[in-house]
């Protein structure tokens, strides 16, 4: 807490001299520059189109867009529910996909991350190769490869069987996203382990623990706690990165918003609702993770950082 306060003060002092922007927001200045337009009626800035930005006006006079927030309670064309319900089912898919992919990312990432800290040279090499491979190809290309290419390369029947799986797109997205994120998780885990003082590992060896035991009882419990914040943001990235899965036909939140827009023609209601849901989701995850982090904290270690 103290650290944060000091930082804030520092930032303050620095920028005061740096950037005399503060004058801009003095109300008198603002008013005098804008006042000639005040009499020009609703159409002009800043009052101009405020209704559009607040999502209330029938666009009409200022922009050619009419808001209709009631659209969420309209029936979707498949008559299975409202648009709101459709967005919610998209949210479910997003969360489920993120969790499944995160499971893969966490497990594979931990394995590879640990491998890169082992004394064995080959392990480090394999770990590095894995990371470079999954990190240097765009997620979208990886999704296409899992979805379109991998089944073609598998022997006949297996490929056909995979292709005809009903939730094929979901599985491809889960694998693609999982492995893509695992390379980032692995890099974090390696960094976490390497951030520990060398003495920790030596102490483990000194008291007669095997390599496995050193990792299990000394290094990993500390490393995971150090990298908890970056792992949280990797998890948030996983949630965001579920959106490209719409390109291979996964009906997640963005895809639902897009299809709502196509059927109802209310573009901005659809996308701003999806955006709001993503915001809430990431806020909830952030808060949840912070609580979890406090729970897991070891008194005296890594506190106040």
């Amino acid at each position: 807490m103290r650290v944060a306060r000091v930082r804030r003060v520092r930032g303050r002092q620095r920028v005061k001299h740096w950037l005399p922007l503060t004058r801009l927001e003095r109300p008198s200045v603002v008013r005098s520059t804008l006042s000639p337009q005040a009499g020009r009626g609703k159409k002009q800035w800043p009052g101009h189109c405020m209704g559009f930005w607040l999502g209330t006006a029938r666009g009409g006079e200022c922009v050619n867009y009419n808001w209709n927030w009631g659209i969420f309670w309209d029936q979707t064309p498949d008559a299975t529910g409202t648009y709101f319900g459709s967005l919610m089912s998209g949210l479910q898919v997003t969360i489920l996909l993120a969790l499944c992919a995160w499971f893969i990312a966490f497990v594979m990432g931990s394995l590879i991350g640990i491998m890169r800290t082992l004394p064995a040279r080959w392990a480090v090499f394999v770990g590095n190769a894995y990371i470079e491979m999954f990190r240097n190809i765009p997620l979208l290309v990886q999704l296409f490869i899992w979805f379109f290419v991998v089944p073609e390369l598998l022997p006949g029947d297996l490929g056909i069987w995979i292709k005809q799986l009903r939730n094929g797109p979901f599985i491809a997205a889960m694998l693609g996203l999982g492995f893509y994120m695992s390379s980032r998780v692995a890099a974090q885990i390696t960094a976490g382990i390497n951030a520990l003082p060398k003495g920790q590992r030596m102490a483990g060896t000194a008291i007669g623990l095997t390599t496995w035991q050193t990792y299990r009882y000394i290094l990993l419990p500390l490393a995971y706690r150090i990298i908890f914040p970056p792992l949280t943001s990797e998890f948030l990235n996983t949630i965001k990165n579920t959106a490209p899965a719409l390109t291979i036909g996964v009906l997640e939140l963005t895809a639902r918003a897009r299809s709502m827009q196509e059927f109802s023609f209310q573009v901005f209601e659809a996308f701003s609702a999806a955006a709001a849901i993503y915001l809430v989701l990431s806020a909830v995850v952030t808060i949840g993770m912070r609580i979890l982090e406090k729970r897991l904290a070891i008194p005296g270690f890594n506190e106040g950082k």
Binding site: K240, L246, T254, V267, Y278
Partner: peptide, 18 residues
């Protein structure tokens, strides 16, 4: 940082002319 880029691409593409 909380929004997926795909969503932002769609939204801005439609929103920018307004």
């Amino acid at each position: 940082r909380s929004l997926p880029l795909v969503l932002v691409i769609f939204l801005f593409y439609f929103l920018m002319p307004y």
